[in-house]
Design a protein around this nucleic acid. Structure first.
Lengths: 251, 251
DNA sequence: AAGTGACTCGCACAGTGTTCGAGTCCACTG
DNA sequence: CAGTGGACTCGAACACTGTGCGAGTCACTT
């Protein structure tokens, strides 16, 4: 029975002495490249070994198993997220920068999304990100459990938005068609079922959403949501902290 | 090359004449049971066939492939979400009921979470849910692209929150330990690295979060986020619609 | 009685993650 | 310098996966 406390991060790394041809960092990097290029289904230990010019089973010396490798890969790309220092900017800007950066990362590495619900990551990069987030939100005046709630709220928005966006993007990519082609092809199907979903059909027609650039819609949707969240948080701040000075400078 | 428009939903169902021992509904139901009991990794066509007392390849008569089966399963459980009629309650309550229901569903069927980012679902239950959401949000005064943004915002919060919660729950379940045991075992590891993450360590100590019931914290975190989102939306409503009468009754 | 189409299913194939044990090479000790 | 131990590589093998194919069974129509 595996234990939660027995993960890549709590186990000591194997000591390195010789000059081996393979290294853990190299393997993780190659895995990320493969995942970016071909998605989660494209990564197999044999293919990864081949890409590195070594046998598939050699990898198991450096990595306990595939799950561990994926966990390492997730933590690695988490390190790409930039969390601003508190005090540099108003807290809303700081949080927005973090959220935008996280969203961009998830859309660069869409395979991460499917892994986030499987197992929590406590790797160094994630920890470092958490540490900096605490600094940012502390400076904004959030403390105690609420600080954690705020952090969860922001990350949940990013993850949720990226999830649906990635799903559509994956389908578009798989189909090999442009978004416009797909819309055109899907149209008759939607027309046909319009009678079953009258409210939706009405909105679809009168909203003009069919004429818009999908990519822009995603961006707008994400930005709109983030602004509403920040508005809501600001309101809470005013009511529960009453001190707006922290909005400008840290501490 | 598969096409986006060639999915389970756009293809006509096979006509049924005889009295077969297997049915699509039965297969989907059994698949959901298996997924609930053992997670995504526990579902294989062979095991599913065995559970239904039939050969594994027999399933392929009723279902094109495993991906299609999963899509059917996702849509099925999406049907468990209750979206209130507009007019029954203030819009905030209506939205909260939908969000709570969706969260509960995702936590009942955590395997769904890992599939949401893989491929968009346009099954009947999802469509029906969309239709009713449009009705709810229209009655609240949201129109055009903003209505879609609001819907995305709510669902993103639910999905994002459920994602991290499910990840932890899965790890706890796998470990076979209680949350308290895990915390106790993880403690030395966190102590050890506390020096590297000073802000986090400070917050952890002074927030008292270690003494709380994890399940309650999840609930509180989700509710806190939802309230902030609804506050932010309310603010937007007041500024951009200026009509608060729609808050009480539909239309 | 023959035929047709719905449906079931065993076999086979290519591919997966992972274990095991044999093999290679280097750094160090005696 | 011989030898030993450990770091590291890797081929073979095992149990498993999704799925195509073709043969088989049955109910019903003509």
């Amino acid at each position: 029975m595996p234990e939660f406390t027995d993960s890549v991060w709590t186990r000591p790394a194997r000591p390195r002495t010789g000059q081996p041809t393979l290294s853990r960092e190299q393997i993780v990097r190659a895995a990320i490249e493969l995942l970016d290029a071909e998605g989660a289904a494209g990564l197999s230990m044999r293919r990864l070994g081949a890409r590195l010019g070594s046998g598939a089973t050699s990898l198991y010396w450096h990595v306990a198993n595939k799950d561990d490798l994926l966990e390492l890969a997730v933590d690695q790309v988490m390190g790409e997220i930039y969390v601003p220092e508190p005090g540099d900017t108003p807290w809303r800007v700081g949080v927005s920068v973090m959220a935008d950066g996280m969203r961009a990362m998830l859309l660069r590495h869409t395979w991460v999304i499917g892994l986030l619900g499987v197992r929590p990551t406590i790797g160094p990069n994630v920890m470092r990100m958490g540490d900096r987030s605490v600094a940012l939100l502390s400076a904004a005046g959030f403390t105690g459990p609420v600080l954690s709630h705020v952090h969860s709220l922001i990350t949940a928005h990013v993850i949720g938005a990226a999830t649906t966006e990635a799903a559509v993007a994956a389908a578009v990519h798989r189909s090999g068609q442009s978004a416009a082609e797909i819309r055109e092809r899907l149209e008759p199907f939607l027309e046909e079922t319009a009678g079953d979903y009258p409210e939706y059909a009405r909105w679809r027609q009168e909203s003009g959403v069919t004429e818009m650039d999908p990519e822009q819609v995603w961006d707008q949707s994400f930005a709109f949501g983030l602004e509403r969240i920040l508005d809501g948080l600001e309101l809470w701040r005013v009511n529960h902290i009453g001190d707006t000075s922290a909005a400008q400078s840290g501490g």
